[in-house]
Design a protein around this nucleic acid. Structure first.
Length: 78
DNA sequence: TTTCTGACA
DNA sequence: TGTCAGTA
């Protein structure tokens, strides 16, 4: 889906979506024209980022969970 | 019409 | 975060 769709579905501004990517929290695919192409995984990622964010975490802190947030890697076990 | 990048406040 | 410019 396009950034505009994800923006409405997650209630997150396009500005922040691009920001999350710049911080390495999102890894959207690119279309031939250079547009960001988001999948359902990214949609879930944004939800989790919003959760951690509302918990008072800073992007620098959240970035450490990037692997988990993307649903990749191992399960978090402190 | 919508999205892209980089920069400023 | 919002917004501006010139493109694709």
């Amino acid at each position: 889906m396009k950034i505009g769709e994800l923006s409405r579905r997650c209630e997150v501004s396009i500005r922040m979506l691009r920001y999350y990517e710049a911080e390495g929290l999102l890894k959207p695919r690119r279309t031939a024209s250079g547009y960001r192409d988001y999948g359902p995984l990214d949609e879930q990622a944004v939800e989790r980022i919003k959760l951690l964010g509302s918990a008072g975490m800073t992007l620098a802190t959240i970035r450490q969970f990037a692997e988990c947030i993307r649903g990749e890697g191992r399960i978090f076990e402190p």
